[in-house]
Design a protein around this nucleic acid. Structure first.
Length: 191
DNA sequence: CTGTAGATCGTCT
DNA sequence: GACGATCTACAGA
């Protein structure tokens, strides 16, 4: 079942980041449907989170979508190469978002393999936010896409037992965030 | 297996 | 004009 708009309106972005583990992320573009079970996430929590692009209330053309109401995609270019896919959550004017860092491919695996020129790991484990976007063909053009539409959406068909296997950790690649780099806002399946 | 350099461009200073 | 919520290839041990 597709997650509804209401799911994304929860004000606790950290709780959502944890809850998203085990959910299915789906895209449907020209080549067909591709999907994977989310195995790794990170929460970015509002203007007081130094690791967030919206830290200190920085509201620019790039971060504008983060200030929107929950249920839309925030996609931005990293290191000039990688499109990183985030899910905006919570209320309007409060910039909360969840970065998707890893999935297990479960549908359209051959399509994904082609997107990696045949280099997709055979076991279907896709870790790293850049590779997740590449596998699902998400790019910066999808910034602001509604996640209850027909191109990108999430499904709640996961095994509830998965929630018992979620572990929390420090976030990655944000050494500039000072104390906030140690917040346990990163969630993993199976440790 | 570990470490590191290079890629590459939009965004912000 | 510098740098980043990264990935890959390749060198060396």
């Amino acid at each position: 079942m597709k997650l509804s708009r209401g799911y994304y309106l929860d004000e606790d972005v950290v709780a959502i980041a944890r809850d998203l583990i085990g959910k299915t992320l789906v895209t449907n573009f020209e080549e067909g449907i591709t999907a994977g079970i989310i195995t790794e996430t990170e929460a970015y929590a509002g203007i007081h989170d130094r690791a967030s692009h919206a830290w200190g209330g920085r509201r620019t053309k790039r971060t504008e979508v983060m200030f929107g109401e929950g249920g839309i995609a925030y996609v931005y270019l990293c290191y000039g190469i990688h499109s990183l896919f985030n899910i905006v959550t919570g209320l309007e004017n409060i910039p909360n978002a969840v970065l998707i860092r890893g999935i297990n491919a479960i549908r359209g695996i051959e399509i994904m393999r082609n997107r990696f020129a045949g280099n997709l790991p055979l076991n279907g484990r896709i870790n790293g936010p850049g590779r997740v976007s590449r596998a699902l063909a998400i790019n910066t053009g999808h910034n602001g896409t509604n996640l209850t539409g027909n191109n990108i959406w999430l499904e709640n068909n996961a095994n509830p037992q998965i929630q018992l296997k979620v572990t929390s950790h420090c976030r990655i690649g944000i050494d500039y965030a000072g104390e906030d780099a140690f917040l346990p806002y990163r969630f993993l399946l199976n440790g």
